[in-house]
Write a protein that binds this DNA or RNA. Sequence first.
DNA 1: CCTATTCCCTGAAGGC
DNA 2: TGCCTTCAGGGAATAG
Length: 275
Amino acid sequence: MPEMPEVETVRRSLIAQVKGRKITHVEIRYPDLITGDVDQFVEFVTGATISDVGRRAKFLLIHLDNGYTIISHLRMEGKYRISADPSAIDKHSHAIFTLDNGQKMIYNDVRKFGRMQLWNTDELSENKSLKKLGPEPLSTEFTFQNLKPRIMRHHKDIKTVLLDQSVMSGLGNIYVDEVLWQVKLHPETPANHLSDEDIQKIIEASNQEMDKGIAAGGSSIRTYVDATGHKGNMQNNLKVYGKEGTPCPRCGTEIVKIKVGGRGTHFCPKCQVVK
DNA sequence: CCTATTCCCTGAAGGC
DNA sequence: TGCCTTCAGGGAATAG
């Protein structure tokens, strides 16, 4: 499932292949993929040149030279693939962008959870989805001063709060479990029970996990690959996610899996304590 | 303002 | 060519 490091890896693999390319044709096979008017999306994207590919948290930002940006969220299974091979297109290909070099930028999404929308590049900060995002790791806004009040005003469990993209953005279910293991916090600890030191540790661990994830090219837990079809390696560095029944790398206690806020949650019942 | 719940989707896996 | 249930889950919408 693409979280910030995976989306960043996609961004990098995409930019290397499509920056400067003109989109000569657009085909939307699954209209619900597009938030807003599909015909307008096709009209404005066709003929535009991809000037850059950016990212905000888990949102990809495909900037066009005509003043518009495609805001693309991969959700669970969305993936881009650049290929001139017709066999790269299948029943799960929901958007096909033909490029001026004969390649196609194909958006695939088995679960159809991903969404795209077109927005004025100059007004991205006013977009409803982007506007509500909290600070993301590795950014200058990701500071103790900014994060403490955002976290502490909640009395829900810390796992749910860290997954809330309006509190802080970029982390998903995998990396949240990893961060909480790193800082030795039980995922069901009420957020407002955290100490300043806990907050500081969460910030540092989030930065570190995102750094490691990006360096590893993301985590290929299920089907994740980047826009060149390559898997990441971060799944080999995970300590708790998907490790239920195996020994905690720190204390040897068996990792357990529970549900927190409806999400599968992995943690060490001995060294991650409730506060 | 806040929290909790439902919905969107399909394929893999497991039980019988 | 087995059928059915459960699970994976980010974010938007809705309910209370």
